[in-house]
Design a protein around this nucleic acid. Structure first.
Lengths: 110, 110
DNA sequence: TTATCATATGAACAATCGTTCATATGAGGT
DNA sequence: ACCTCATATGAACGATTGTTCATATGATAA
């Protein structure tokens, strides 16, 4: 029957799909990339590690705004930090970050 | 001087950075992936093309909610559609989509 | 200690977002 | 014409988000 084949098909797609929790985690990851301030920060850090005020100066934004966003990025484990005296240097946690950005770039430029 | 080297460094990072418009476009792309409903839809469509009501049934969500999200995905050029009688079938616009998702998946599973 | 510089953080605000509900459009079928 | 099924859409709602402002913490120097 037609209806049975339909249900069969839905079931098949369902079983291939990762569990809700995983997909939620995935969308959370992408939403971190979904803000231009954070993208700029990530890009800057992919060039070299930087202090908070340096990033703020580079992006012409408030130190507070940057600090808040660094918190988000740190929470998503995309960046790490290192303290040297008064200043804190931030850097990319791994190079998945850059490859995700590059993949997105590739999609845009077509 | 120390201060000149700092400005030099900032300038160098700036020149390497894509222009604001591009980064805004990039973050908009990622924010489309930044919602679990949309991720689920994209995943489903990466398995096979599907009608609106089929997606709604699969995700146990309202037809309206799905339709609104399909609009977002279509606007981001991640999906296309094909009409067959009364029903409209949606499918992935290209396979960048799947590779972006896979890249994200790779980051999560570590 | 006190002063200063670098960074972090909490509250408040406007703006954006995803869903729901009601309704509109559009394409058959009778 | 009418009815029905599939899809689209506008308004409204609560929820989340990014920035600002004010203030707190933390580290160094005097």
């Amino acid at each position: 029957m037609e209806h049975d084949k339909h249900k069969e098909m839905l079931k098949q797609v369902m079983t291939g799909m990762p569990k809700d929790e995983t997909l939620a985690e995935l969308s959370e990851l992408f939403s971190v990339f979904g803000d231009s301030t954070r993208i700029k920060i990530l890009w800057a850090l992919s060039e070299r590690e930087m202090s908070v005020c340096c990033i703020a100066e580079l992006l012409k934004m408030t130190q507070s705004a940057i600090s808040h966003q660094l918190k988000n990025l740190r929470h998503a484990k995309l960046i790490s930090s290192r303290r040297e005296g008064k200043t804190v240097y931030y850097f990319l946690a791994d190079d998945h970050v850059r490859s995700i950005i590059d993949q997105g770039m590739e999609h845009i430029s077509e």
